[in-house]
């Protein structure tokens, strides 16, 4: 984050048309100790789990300060999905997270997806208030955008060119920013 830069607000990131340069807040911005415990993505039709990650119980919390050279290891996820995933009718995502000793007002996620200079998708979800020391879940079923054969071909041919920024706010305050990169693994002959 550039010193003296204007604060990053939800309105600001909803205007983004390209991946953010670096991370727009430090890890220490997470003053509410929001911690992601589990995340799973399933194909809605088949129920097949496409991705699942969970933090082992008792794992140490994410450090508040880290060598910038190592930051991507903590703040960026690389996904590999089977190519068929791009033809799925819908997806089901399940997120489980904990919050610390303080209540979190107006918790909100904004996620922006880009591919080759284009905004692919934008998600904007308001969790609202989070109870102190609570464990919460959000399970969402999304219809998938229809991907043309040309788009599917391009996504498969360009591993990690599909990227996303996930921003988490409490009110107007950016408390977390993570990134993800996606590749699609061809399965057919």
């Amino acid at each position: 984050m550039v010193a003296g830069a204007p604060p990053v607000t939800p309105e600001h990131v909803l205007q983004h048309r390209a991946p953010a340069p670096g991370y727009l807040c430090p890890l220490s911005a997470n003053t509410y100790d929001v911690e992601f415990v589990e995340f799973e993505i399933r194909d809605y039709e088949t129920g097949a789990s496409v991705f699942k990650v969970s933090r082992p119980p008792g794992a140490p919390p994410v450090p508040k300060h880290i060598d910038p050279a190592l930051e991507d290891q903590v703040r960026q996820v690389r996904y590999a999905f089977p190519e068929e995933f791009l033809r799925a009718q819908g997806i089901r995502t399940a997120l489980k997270f904990k919050v610390g000793d303080e209540p979190v007002p107006d918790f909100r996620m904004i996620e922006r997806h880009y591919f080759q200079g284009e905004l692919l998708r934008s998600f904007d979800f308001n969790f609202g208030f989070c109870i102190p020391n609570s464990t919460n879940t959000w399970e969402a079923v999304y219809p998938m955008p229809e991907n043309s054969p040309a788009r599917i071909k391009a996504l498969v041919a360009s591993p990690y060119a599909h990227v996303s920024d996930s921003f988490y706010f409490s009110g107007q305050q950016l408390i977390m920013h993570n990134k993800a990169q996606y590749r699609y693994v061809p399965t057919g002959p």
Binding site: F127, S134, N136, T137, E139, A140, V141
Partner: peptide
């Protein structure tokens, strides 16, 4: 439930 569970569905 020690918090909330949100379901978003059609």
């Amino acid at each position: 439930t020690l918090g909330f569970n949100i379901k978003t569905m059609q």
